[in-house]
């Protein structure tokens, strides 16, 4: 696509995108670190995650300021308008993801008295969720709608995995009443990871809107993918 005739506008849009991506990088790092802290029983790392959440929150405020300015001063239309709207929504999802990572770090700190067991399935879920988040950021960076579609498709497997973890936890808690508190903790961490996957899907959906103008939320996947691919072919 050609550049804007008003160079300053082009610069502002590029700066906004770069800021969103750097926020995404920080969020992704926070999720990885919180899981690493959990798996390696590293409270120092967990505290660092909690500390750095402030920076993520600050970036959210910065980005909101930038989008407000562009809306008020540049009156963006068409693809620019869709980019701004998507950014506003994606930033909220990223901030929530950051909160999820913070939640995991806090759970890790709490779980020091009652160590968690059976971390293998949580680790597997965390890998999947982080991969989804990474892909979501990639598809935002590249405007890749096919990648976005694959993220949406993966949602089911993450949900399935989370349900499996729920069932496992339930079994452990029924077997051994002393494991109830650890089980609840594991459940909440799993829930956070599942949410991270949901936010990644939200981001992917906004990327499709940003690139093609189609709103694929709350419709079944076949229809969505037909809509997206038809647009690519034409």
């Amino acid at each position: 696509m050609k550049d804007h005739t008003v160079r300053r506008f082009e610069d502002e849009l590029n700066e906004l995108k770069a800021t969103v991506l750097s926020m995404g990088g920080m969020v992704e790092k926070a999720v990885r670190r919180s899981m690493k802290a959990l798996l390696e029983h590293d409270p120092k790392r967990a505290r660092k995650v909690i500390e750095r959440d402030d920076k993520i929150n600050q970036l959210e405020r910065d980005i909101d300021q930038m989008t407000r300015n562009i809306l008020a001063l540049r009156q963006p239309a068409a693809s620019d308008l869709r980019f701004i709207i998507s950014t506003i929504k994606i930033v909220t999802d990223l901030e929530r993801t950051g909160d999820m990572a913070e939640g995991i770090a806090e759970a890790m700190l709490k779980s020091q008295e009652t160590p968690l067991t059976h971390l293998e399935s949580l680790e597997e879920l965390a890998l999947k969720a982080t991969a989804q988040l990474k892909k979501a950021l990639d598809c935002f960076a590249r405007g890749d709608v096919l990648l976005a579609l694959s993220i949406i498709e993966n949602e089911k497997s993450i949900n399935g995995m989370f349900q499996r973890i729920q069932r496992e936890n339930l079994t452990y808690m029924l077997e051994d009443h002393r494991k109830i508190s650890a089980g609840l903790m594991a459940y909440s961490i799993g829930k956070n990871l599942e949410r991270i996957g949901d936010h990644a899907v939200n981001i992917a959906e906004m990327v499709i809107y940003m690139v093609q103008g189609h709103d694929v939320r709350h419709i079944d996947h076949e229809t969505a993918s037909a809509l997206v691919t038809s647009n690519i072919e034409s």
């Binding site: 696509m1 550049d3 008003v6 506008f9 068409a78």
Partner: peptide, 10 residues
């Protein structure tokens, strides 16, 4: 149309 509406008048 996109280019015109978004101010890309190359």
């Amino acid at each position: 149309t996109e280019d015109y509406i978004t101010g890309r008048f190359g």
